[in-house]
Design a protein around this nucleic acid. Sequence first.
DNA 1: CGAAGTGACGGAACTTGGTCACATCACTTC
DNA 2: GAAGTGATGTGACCAAGTTCCGTCACTTCG
Lengths: 190, 190
Amino acid sequence: MARWEPNARERLVRAAIDLFSEQGYDNTTVIEIAERAGLTKTTFFRHFPNKREVLSTGQEELGQLLREGIAGAPTSTTPLEAVAAGLDAATARFTPAQREFGPRLEAVIAANSDLQERDAFKHTRLVAAMAEALEERGVPDPVTRIAAELGGLAFSRAFTRWTMPANTLTFSELARRTLRELHAATRGLD
Amino acid sequence: MARWEPNARERLVRAAIDLFSEQGYDNTTVIEIAERAGLTKTTFFRHFPNKREVLSTGQEELGQLLREGIAGAPTSTTPLEAVAAGLDAATARFTPAQREFGPRLEAVIAANSDLQERDAFKHTRLVAAMAEALEERGVPDPVTRIAAELGGLAFSRAFTRWTMPANTLTFSELARRTLRELHAATRGLD
DNA sequence: CGAAGTGACGGAACTTGGTCACATCACTTC
DNA sequence: GAAGTGATGTGACCAAGTTCCGTCACTTCG
């Protein structure tokens, strides 16, 4: 018989989301999270660098997928089409579990400014990753930032659409569609 | 004779920036900041809700100026021109002291991820303020976000240009100019 | 003129996030 | 079967942030 149950990290994430939903982020202690997962505070911090990060798993992987998707697009494609390729790569690995947790996550984040800060940082990191990948393709400076910003908007808007119960489309389909809508709206600026 | 020296808040900000520049953000304690300002830890937390916020003074005021500037633009102006009016209002009240502190602030923020999170949040709050002000003017949904995002980019890029020693232009002039450049670059997306 | 506010600060105890050194124990490997 | 290995537990520790209470100059009002 094993001394420890497996999947300690996943148990911690689930316990954290449950407790945050039940009693709020500020009112739940790291010790509480660890104990509900059958572990201790020290073990929690072995799996996550801090309390916020328990909700931001797989962040660096997402940025890497965006970079690779943009770098792998054919050289003849436009900046925005390269961004679409990056979104394809990034959205492909999302699981049904992530779709299910989406609304609860958003509710918890919306209720706490610390988590909002963390979320804003995540978003800017993703945008920065896209901008850098575009720059390496030779896209000129202001265009990189704008295309990346549109990609970031498309990603987050598509995610909330994807997690809506009525939705039947793929995250990737929604991302491409949202990006097209944003591009079209560009002509409404003046 | 007064019991306390005046300008406690300003003294705390200066002490914090000095100490952060000298020995880094993580390595300086709130007690150190307070003592250099001739105060105590308790008084520090009476002026600022937490350690990060000592570098983010006048944040809500900035958002309010953006809102008012956008709301006050003539009804016939385009979304992007309304954003330009908001930038006019927001950039007008920046002081030479803020220009002088700019590079040091950016250096301190660049060296610490906590401060980067806080900075990202500030940026998204400003963008959200612009988007909401545009929405109240009747601008349709995706256009509000894009125009606001361009406004946010223009603001931050213009700020770093403004603080460069070689610069002779006004922050407001730079903001309008940067916004025009971003708008022009929009046509390079495809 | 004097006594009761008022407001800005100090002091100290307390909770919690986060770190660290060290011990423990199942499992593997040689 | 003895020596790793790796994930965990224990407990002490530090700094951020909160809370309660006390202090003292200044103001206000009877």
